[in-house]
Amino acid sequence: MRKTFPVITVLLVITAIWYLGSWRMNTPWALQQAARAEQTLTTGELFKATMQQDRPRLPAPHQVVSELWKSTGAMVQRGKAFSKRSLIYHGAITLGSTLTGFALGVFIGILGAVAITYSRVMEMSLMPWAIVSQTIPIVALAPMIIVLSNAVGIESRAVPKAIISAYLCYFPVLVGMVKGLNSPGTEQLDLLKTYNAGVAASFFKLRLPASMPYLFTSLKIAIAAALVGTIVGELPTGAISGLGARILIGDQFGTPLAIWAALFAAAILAGVLVTLLGLAQGLVLKRMGMAR
C-alpha cells in the first residue's frame, strides 16, 4: 500500500490543525480561570489547561475520542450497551429510522423515475415538484411533518422521522434513476424494437440493468441524506432518543463533549453505511460483469 503514508500524513495534519484550534479557542477560558485563582501559567501549563477542560469551546481530539469511548466501548464492557446513556442505543434508534426512511425514499425515487421515463406527462408534472421539494429547508418542514403525523394519530416518533428522512433521500435516487433508465441510446432501443420486444422486456433486459451504476451512485448520496434527515427530524421534536436528540440535549445542557461525541458517532455511522453500499456496488457490478 503505497498510499498509506500520504493518507496518514493528511490525517496527522488535520489532527494537528485541530489541536492548534483547540489550544487557541480554549486559551481565554484557561487564562480567566488562572487569573481568578491568581496564578500565572507557563506556556506549557497553559497548553495543558486548554486540553482538558470540561466545557471547552472546541474539545481536543483525544477528549472527543475518550468521550466517544466512554459512551460506546466502555458501556459495552460494562454490559450496558443499550443503556440510555450509550451512543450505541441512540445510534441504533437513528439507524432504524434512517434505514426505514432510506427504503421508503429509494422506493419512491425509483417509482417516480420509472413514471418519468415512460410518461412525458409525468416528466412535466412530477419533475418540477421534485426539484421544488428540495429547495424547502428541511428544518422548516420537519416540525410540520411531526405535527401533521401527530394530528392524524401517529404516536410513534419513528414514523415522522422516517418520512423526513425519505423526503431528503428520494431525490438523488429519482434524478439518478431517470438518468440511468434513459442511459440506453436510440440504437439500443431500436434494436429491441426489431426484436418486437414489449415494454416489460425493454425495461427488465435493457433499462434496468443499464441503470445499475447510476443507482448505486445515487444510493450512496441518498443514505447520507437519509441520515441527515433523521437527525434533523430528531432535533426539533422534543425527542429524547437518537443521535439528533443527543446533540440537542448536549447543546441545552452545555456539554460540548457530548455534542461532539454524538456528531462523530453520526459521522462514523454515515461512513459505515456509505462503505457498505460501496461494497454492495462492487459486488453487484462485478457479478453483472460491469466492473473491469
Binding site: 441510446g185 440504437e187 426489431t194 422486456a201 460483469g289
Partner: peptide, 27 residues
C-alpha cells in the same frame, strides 16, 4: 430480418453468449 447497427451495441452486463441470447429470450 436481423438488424446490425454501426455500434455493436452489446450489453456490457451480458457475456457474448448472453448477448446473442437476448433476442432469443425475448422471442
Amino acid at each position: 430480418y436481423g438488424y446490425v447497427f454501426q455500434a455493436a451495441g452489446l450489453y456490457p452486463w451480458r457475456t457474448i453468449a448472453g448477448n446473442i441470447k437476448l433476442p432469443l429470450e425475448i422471442m
